[in-house]
Design a binder for these strands. Structure first.
Lengths: 208, 208
DNA sequence: GTAAGTAGTAATCAGTTGATTACATCAAGA
DNA sequence: TCTTGATGTAATCAACTGATTACTACTTAC
């Protein structure tokens, strides 16, 4: 039988697949709530394999969070590459915000990071959380060339966006108050944001 | 023996004490990570009592989150009561932000809410998360009289503040990048914010 | 063709955790 | 005083979960 038929993958491919699954599960349930078994099911492998490949749940979460941060960085660098020489702050910020918005298509990325940030007290994850956040901040400051005030305002909006998404505010879009808040927050990037964030299948969960 | 000597309390007092403990524990570890036993230890009662008094961990978290939201609402109303007739947006926002900042003294409140917000996908907690957030938004809009844009900007800054606090960015204040970010974000409210958030004893944890 | 390494799993285990039960202790009213 | 209801706990349980072990099956190099 060929590898295609047996469903066997190289370790690198399987690793990527498990990281994708981990992003979904950790994004929805956080570190403590996300089980290695749920990740295994999502990836279509056994729970034992997930644990062994990454050497434990903690290392898997680290890898998952670092990968999420890398994707944010990658997205920002992509937006910066599209800067024109005469772009003002508003245009730069908009391009960054749109890049950020596109990350929402993979809900797991931003939600995994949000969960990482909420673990600041943790001896192991705290330093990782701070360094991940500061990495992205540094790029916006130095590579995008925003001032501290502009960067702070940009991240403020980004965190509100992430939070609204985490609490699935788009699900409450029929509430006029919620609609007003989202309209104002997403602003110029809102056109596709709400549609992007809808219809993403939740995890289904049953015994092992 | 008198009630003072035996350490016995009325159910209402004990309830308040447990809710305070729950705020600390859930704030640090989230819903899934916060154990009823850790809450019981923090409150100085048995684990069985915690569970029985609230009818389960889920109801305890709901009560804890609702209490946190109530304290935010209370703080906002307190700030609004200090508004002067000729206050402009900037003065109003500053008063609200300072009230918000004082909430930080009890780290558990904002962090418990942040954890609640990250549970938007949950059937039970999702609606609660959205309604808690929208309650505070409505107060800022209608009672404080901010426009949607102003309110959105206010909450954006609030979420960034909360996130920085959750990841304990003040612990990294020796990093110049981190210091710059905090300086800009906390702005006029920063004077006491960093000192407020420091030296808060972490949970100590050992077997039951 | 076979030996060796790699992908992958089933079965199982020990620690943790939310919940339950039965019981103890204490204050107040009849 | 003694009975009743409320405060509170120790002991225990069943379910869950991360990790380990022993094993199978496939692929590749020689």
């Amino acid at each position: 039988m060929s590898p295609e038929e047996t469903g066997r993958l190289s370790a690198a491919d399987r690793r990527e697949q498990i990281l994708t699954a981990a992003s979904v599960v950790f994004g929805e349930r956080g570190y403590a709530g996300g089980t290695t078994d749920a990740i295994a099911q999502q990836a279509g492998v056994s729970q034992a394999y997930v644990v062994r490949m990454f050497g434990g749940k903690e290392k898997l979460f680290r890898a998952s969070a670092e990968r999420a941060a890398d994707k944010v960085i990658e997205a920002f660098r992509g937006a910066i590459a599209e800067f024109n020489a005469n772009d003002d702050v508003h245009e730069k910020t908009l391009k960054l915000a749109i890049a950020y918005t596109h990350l929402v298509a993979d809900r797991g990325i931003l939600l995994t990071l949000l969960h990482l940030f909420s673990l600041g007290h943790d001896e192991s994850f705290g330093p990782l959380a701070r360094s991940c956040f500061l990495s992205t901040y540094t790029i916006v400051r130095e590579e995008a060339g925003l001032t501290p005030e502009e960067a702070s305002a940009f991240f403020a909006r980004g965190m509100l966006t992430t939070t609204l998404l985490a609490m699935r505010m788009p699900d409450a879009a029929d509430d006029p108050t919620a609609a007003e808040l989202m309209q104002c927050t997403f602003g110029e990037t809102s056109t596709d944001l709400i549609t992007l964030s809808q219809g993403q299948s939740p995890l289904d969960d049953s015994g092992r």
